[in-house]
Computed example of a mutant assay.
Amino acid sequence: MDFTLIETFRYEPGQGVLRIEQHLKRLARSADALRFRQPAGVRKKLDDHVRDADTSLRVRMTLTHKGELDITSTPFTPLEKDTVWRLKVARTRIDSADPLIRHKTSRRDVYEAARAEYPAEDADEVILLNEKGDVCEGTITSLFVADGGGPLMTPTLTSGLLSGVLRTDMICQQKARIQRLRLQDLANRDIFVGNSLRGLIRAELIEA
């Protein structure tokens, strides 16, 4: 295999790795689906890695096809609570039939191409659509749209997107529900993006 599986998560002193069970379950499911060897002693290796940490960390775990695990980390500064990200829509499209889209891997060509369409000063995140025009996800985040005070709407996996850990957690808590979304469904609604590392971020769609 010419790619690795990836999990990126947040460590907080006194709390440990946030949503660790969901991350490890996703890693195991992807390993099974893509016929990667399951790694041994993942939890212990992760605990050992963060044992002496006294600050917030961005932790990155990679798994090779042979079951080789690598863990690295860097200091992490959480976003301010009033942060609003500017969103642009990519011309690059996701192929909803691509099975790798549903797993977090090092094959990120489509996301890198979408991100490269706009300079950082013009967009904090770029949203991708699939070949049918369905809204899918951001290059590093899941997408959520307000729906009249009820659970936030988030695109269905069948549109072609990653099962994000934050997205799954919010669905399980009934804070979000799956819904096929088109660009017009984002008009005049509150929009959020997020992932397990950064949490939920308020966003606004900037027209091209």
Rank of each mutant, 00 (worst) to 15 (best):
D52C: 00
R108W: 03
K104R: 07
I101S: 08
L57T: 11
D95E: 14
R93V: 04
R102I: 07
L57P: 05
R91C: 07
K66T: 12
K45V: 04
K88Q: 09
K88Y: 02
S96I: 00
L87H: 08
A90D: 02
W85I: 04
S73A: 15
E68G: 03
T64N: 10
R35A: 14
T8V: 11
V17I: 15
E117C: 01
S96K: 11
T72E: 15
Y118K: 04
V17D: 06
L5A: 13
Y111F: 15
E80P: 09
R26A: 01
V110G: 02
A33W: 02
K45S: 08
D82I: 00
T72S: 15
P13C: 03
T55Q: 14
H65C: 09
A31G: 11
D52S: 08
T92E: 03
T8Y: 12
G14V: 00
R10E: 05
R37A: 14
D52F: 03
T92F: 00
R51S: 12
L34E: 05
V89P: 04
A113H: 07
T55D: 07
V50S: 09
R43G: 06
R91V: 13
V42M: 12
R115E: 02
K88V: 06
R93G: 01
L34M: 08
H103D: 02
A90K: 02
R43T: 15
D54E: 15
K66F: 08
L69P: 06
D54H: 13
L87Y: 04
S73G: 14
E68S: 10
L27K: 10
E21Y: 05
R102M: 03
R58P: 00
Y11H: 12
R60M: 15
V42D: 06
R10A: 04
A28W: 01
G16H: 14
T55I: 10
V50W: 08
L79G: 04
I6H: 07
F76R: 04
R51V: 09
